[in-house]
């Protein structure tokens, strides 16, 4: 088929946003390459998702339904994906960089001996000439990602192996449905032909969905709020920005003491010390006990309506303004400017 295929992940009966973002990106890539955009969806009962996939531009949807596939487990899901890729020979295969995608994609790439680039932040089509000019390649997938702890940006290519596989984190690409859905086709995969008993040796015995543990130290981007945020509800705005940028929410001691945020998010002398790539301080005055925990951040943006707030002194970019006005503008500007 030499097409582009997107692995569609479902979570609690809903298509993951990242899968729709990848379809959106896939439309641009398939148009550029003049090939078809396809989707693969696996589960117990997933056919009802097809209209949404058509609305996001999938021209052909492969559906693998089986009661044994109700929840994701590595072996049967990878067996189906590998079988489909072997038969269909897609040129590009995209997966969300979710726990599921990061479990599945490497397994598939290993079975097909094809390359895989994790956590791409940008995907483009371009040509490649070997350094000594012995070989030229047309229309490769440029898989662009930060590396080395975010200190370099690498462009990765897979010249000779197919599919060219990449994972992308949620929220990195834009999600946009078509004004008119594609009138596409559905192809059902015969799972009984592919799956065997050994594929089911790992059993799920318990699952529960819950709030994720807070990992503020490891976050590359932190959106932190202080007492000036005003309420727990207003912290929701910070969470939204953190989610869009792929970061975590932090808080000053004053905000934690006021009950706006959990203790695990506290940054400063009495909390954790962080050194993210980007620190956005909103409604934080900039007391030394807070700045001691974040002043080594690679870049600091402060948002405070008080032009004399000390936080502005240590910021690379000091925005004098109301955070309730500024943060929605940042979110909008980010969505408009990324990809």
């Amino acid at each position: 088929m030499n097409n582009i295929i997107v692995y569609i992940e479902t979570q609690e009966g809903k298509i993951a946003d990242v899968s729709l973002e990848l379809l959106t990106k896939g439309r641009t890539l398939s148009k550029r390459l003049g090939c078809r955009l396809e989707a693969l969806i696996i589960g117990e009962s997933v056919e009802f998702h097809k209209d949404e996939l058509f609305a996001f531009g999938a021209e052909k949807i492969y559906i693998a339904e089986d009661p044994r596939l109700k929840f994701y487990t590595t072996l049967p899901y990878s067996a189906i994906t590998i079988a489909l890729f072997k038969e269909g020979k897609p040129r590009i295969a995209l997966f969300g960089a979710t726990p599921q995608g990061r479990d599945l994609a490497p397994r598939v790439s290993s079975a097909l001996s094809s390359g895989l680039t994790a956590d791409c932040t940008s995907l483009e089509i371009g040509d490649h000439k070997e350094p000594r000019g012995e070989k030229e390649y047309k229309d490769l997938l440029y898989q662009i990602r930060p590396a080395f702890g975010g200190n370099i940006i690498a462009t990765i290519i897979n010249p000779d192996h197919r599919p060219q596989m990449a994972t992308v984190r949620e929220g990195v690409m834009k999600k946009e449905s078509l004004p008119v859905a594609v009138n596409g086709e559905v192809k059902r995969i015969n799972t009984t032909k592919i799956l065997t008993a050994p594929d089911f040796i790992v059993e799920i015995i318990e699952r529960h969905i819950e709030e994720r543990k807070i990992d503020i130290k490891g976050a590359p981007i932190i959106v932190a709020g202080g007492f000036g945020v005003g309420s727990r509800e207003n912290f929701g705005l910070l969470s939204e920005l953190a989610k869009v940028l792929g970061g975590e929410v932090g808080a000053s001691r004053a905000a934690v003491d006021a009950g706006f945020a959990e203790h695990a998010r506290q940054i400063g002398q009495t909390g954790v010390t962080v050194r993210p790539k980007l620190y956005i301080a909103a409604g934080i005055s900039g007391q030394i006990q807070h700045t001691a925990g974040m002043d080594q951040s690679a870049m600091i943006i402060s948002i405070n309506s008080d032009p004399d707030a000390p936080i502005h002194q240590i910021a690379d970019y000091a925005i004098v303004g109301d955070l309730n006005e500024v943060i929605p503008k940042i979110i909008r500007a980010y969505k408009n400017n990324s990809k």
Partner: peptide
């Protein structure tokens, strides 16, 4: 044995620390 190749590496140049004032204008 590596199907992926690095085509290009861009280093990220850190800017000198110099505070810039911005307004909340779009």
């Amino acid at each position: 044995g590596s199907p992926t190749k690095v085509k290009k590496i861009e280093n990220i140049v850190l800017q000198a620390k110099e505070s810039r004032r911005l307004t909340s204008e779009d």
